[in-house]
Amino acid sequence: MLWRYIFFRVLMLIPVSFSISVVIFMIVHLLPGDPIDNLIRVGSSPDDRAALITKYGLDQPLAIQYLRWIGAMFQGDFGEAIVLRRPVADLIAQNLPYSLALGGLAFAFSSIVGIILGTISATTRSKIVEQFMRGFILLGSTVPGFWLALLMILFFAVQLQWFPVSGAGGWSALVLPVLTIGFGGVALVARVTRVALLDVKREDFVMLLHAKGLPSYKILFGHLMPHALLPVVTILALRIGWILGGAVTVEFVFGRPGLGSLLIRALGQRDYPVVQGCLLMLALAVMLGTLIGDVAQAAMDPRIREAKT
């Protein structure tokens, strides 16, 4: 039943990725400004211009251009960066590991710590602990990342000198950015976990679990958590896409390379092949994230497994 669900879910990705690729392809044509204007040297003749247009195939019908572009993509050819004059695939390959390391660690950190904190805040009988958690969750969801990043640098890097101020050299350079991004994630995940747990606790079947004489910890881990994790999985799935592109401001403050920074720079320079390549990667990450999230939910909830097949 689960395999059937996965099959149909993956099948649905085909129209989705087609639409996304069309949108990304059209960006070049829809954004104001002619990319050729950026390419051409000042004072070139109209013949030079025509040659460039032919070189990039911009004189072909849109459909042909699209097919060429997508065909090249499938062969791993993302085109060449106009400003940096290097293959886009190389640029992405160079920046991707930094994004994956930062985003992946921050994701793991916020999932694990967030679920634990959310569970504690929903189950504790201590008013002080609960108040503290609520304060933390409020703070974590409202403090902007770039500001927290600056505070972190000021305290841990400048004052205490535990970690480097900026750069991407080695593991120690990862600690502050991961904490910065993770902080907001922890708060979000903790909040969702907490609310979901408090919701399930009120369900009728939980009363019957108590009536069966099950000890509280068995009810929590055997029954409440699987329910509470359903919405948490949804949130986390959305954040998988975030891993690659969500860290732009934090990357900027810490002076780290990454896909987010690459995209922002390319946008500023109207370097469309790079923009397209980056967007495609981000879109891919978001699609993969929602796919993983949906499949995880289906694996956890039999009602979802059956509803969609």
């Binding site: 019957l208 329910h227 956890m300 009602r303």
Partner: peptide
């Protein structure tokens, strides 16, 4: 309808 754990 609501007395059993729907996930188990």
């Amino acid at each position: 309808m609501t007395s059993l754990d729907p996930l188990q």
